[in-house]
């Protein structure tokens, strides 16, 4: 059951990711990306990382993608008006990405990792254990990330304002 789920989630994740890249309409890209995030959340659940699965759905599929969707709709880009690159550039981009893929897969193929059992019984991903690690070992980075968020929020508001001088 578990391997079948893994294969199904992997294939749907890859297909949806390809859909993000190749679809002409930006709205379709956003929706494909949301589907990809759901597939990746499924992978997290398979690995018993329940907290991250939920955070992935809430933060990524919920907040970030809604932001993308708002921008696409506010800028009225929901039509396939993108002027396309020349065929030469497209071929060059595909070849570059394909070569990168070949290099990465070649490297991965050479790695021999010991097999292991009981991976899916791990309790690392539970909120209890993750919260303990987060608030004992990583308390300062956690607090600093709030400052990062504040800076990002102020920056976004400042950039989004029409006329700063007035």
């Amino acid at each position: 059951m578990l391997p079948v789920l893994f294969i199904a989630l992997s294939i749907s994740a890859i297909l949806c990711a390809l859909g993000v890249v190749v679809s002409r309409n930006p709205i379709h890209s956003v929706l494909f990306l949301i589907l990809t995030f759901f597939c990746i959340s499924g992978h997290y659940i398979l690995m018993n990382a329940q907290f991250l699965a939920l955070v992935n759905i809430i933060v990524y599929a919920g907040a970030i993608m809604v932001l993308f969707l708002f921008v696409v709709m506010l800028l009225n880009l929901n039509k396939a008006t993108e002027p396309h690159k020349s065929d030469m550039a497209k071929i060059a981009a595909s070849i570059t990405a394909g070569l990168l893929l070949m290099v990465m897969l070649g490297v991965i193929k050479g790695v021999s990792l010991p097999s292991f059992d009981g991976m899916m019984d791990s309790e690392n991903g539970y909120v209890k254990n993750l919260g303990r690690v987060l608030f004992q070992d990583y308390l300062i980075p956690f607090e600093l990330s709030s400052i990062l968020f504040l800076a990002a929020m102020v920056g976004a508001v400042l950039l989004g304002k029409k006329n700063i001088e007035e």
Partner: peptide, 28 residues
């Protein structure tokens, strides 16, 4: 039925990363 080898996650993650790279290079 017990577990999935870590290699398969390496493959999947590599493929997804390369699709992302292709998206950055391909689209305007």
């Amino acid at each position: 039925t017990g577990s999935i080898p870590i290699d398969y996650y390496l493959w999947l993650s590599g493929v997804l990363f390369c699709i992302g790279v292709m998206g950055v290079l391909l689209r305007r």
